[in-house]
């Protein structure tokens, strides 16, 4: 379903299927698909839309404070005013400007996304590359561990950790970071495994290149596009989990959370529609942007990983 994604969203579904070891299941990735083999994210209309949405969400988050100021909690007008020229998204029950809060809520979502992706990315690449390049007991051990982390229900764990240790953004980032890397790690491992067998790696080895060198120069670079797709999945999942926590009243009170805004709006569903519309829409735009871009990246990636694309990898 949706909010809180323990696994793989649409864009990455076929990549995920591959990661699960079902190479045959996904002819997409290996067979040539000339009509989809496009060089960049912007080559598909979906990708263009994704970039537009994502850029506007990120732009609003980064540049918005210049316009709306950096005091999202300040009461600036009468409470519960409908949208007007002065307050384009209206004001909430404490007289705060909803636009200002949405801008700062998007910032929080971005912090979560970037933080989680950074932590999960590092862990995933380390575990995946190690496992993929050391078939045998190390691979076995790492994959057991990955499966273990994979079955942990992340939202359940997040609820508990936040309820017990306090609702801090840093707690959420840390928790989601150390539990969200499994799919990416499997993808990285699968790609590493298959690349090891490939001609150009063999060739490099025959030239006397060391294991580490090969990993870094070839495998890591080849794996990157696929890993990016998985990490985009990770990012939208993390954003939705944080919003879900905010919705059940477990958001960090010192920052604005889009989920908390939606939760607060719940009390005003009948009387102030703008309180639920704008935070929800902001969340939708951000997630949709990430997913569409991930989707396009997946297409671009699978094209690049195809027989021809592989040779031209940077």
């Amino acid at each position: 379903m949706r909010p809180v994604t323990d696994a793989v969203p649409a864009p990455a579904a076929d990549v995920a299927a591959r990661a699960a070891g079902v190479r045959a299941a996904s002819p997409t990735s290996r067979r040539g698909r000339p009509e989809l083999r496009r060089p960049a994210v912007l080559a598909t209309p979906g990708g263009v839309l994704g970039v537009v949405l994502l850029t506007s969400a990120v732009g609003l988050a980064l540049l918005g404070p210049v316009v709306v100021g950096d005091r999202p909690f300040a009461s600036v007008a009468a409470p519960l005013q409908a949208p007007s020229a002065a307050h384009v998204m209206g004001t909430d029950d404490l007289g705060r400007d909803v636009l200002t809060m949405v801008v700062h809520g998007l910032r929080t979502s971005l912090v979560i996304a970037v933080g989680v992706v950074a932590i999960a990315g590092v862990i995933a690449v380390c575990v995946g590359a190690l496992a993929g390049s050391h078939p045998g007991s190390l691979d076995d051990l790492l994959m057991r561990g990955t499966e273990l982390v994979q079955v942990v229900p992340r939202f359940f764990l997040a609820v508990v950790v936040v309820a017990l240790f306090g609702a801090r953004v840093s707690n959420v980032v840390l928790l989601l970071g150390v539990t969200s890397w499994t799919w990416t790690a499997r993808v990285v491992r699968a790609e590493t495994l298959s690349l090891r067998q490939r001609a150009f790696v063999e060739a490099a080895r025959s030239f006397g290149a060391g294991q580490t060198y090969i990993l870094r120069r070839h495998i890591a670079v080849s794996v990157l596009p696929t890993a990016l797709v998985m990490l985009s999945v990770c990012a939208s999942g993390a954003v939705l989990i944080e919003a879900g926590l905010g919705f059940v009243g477990l958001g960090d009170p010192d920052v604005v959370s889009l989920g908390s805004l939606a939760s607060n709006a719940q009390r005003f569903l009948r009387s102030a529609w703008w309180l639920t519309l704008f935070p929800g829409a902001a969340l939708l735009i951000l997630i949709l942007g990430i997913n569409l871009v991930g989707d396009a990246l997946g297409d671009a990636g699978s094209a690049r990983l195809g027989p021809v694309g592989l040779g031209s990898t940077r």
């Binding site: 949706r2 919003a243 939606a262 929800g280 939708l284 997913n291 989707d295």
Partner: peptide, 11 residues
């Protein structure tokens, strides 16, 4: 489909 997918469940 991606829009439906991206909609937060609680919303």
């Amino acid at each position: 489909t991606l829009t439906l997918y991206a909609m937060p469940a609680f919303w």
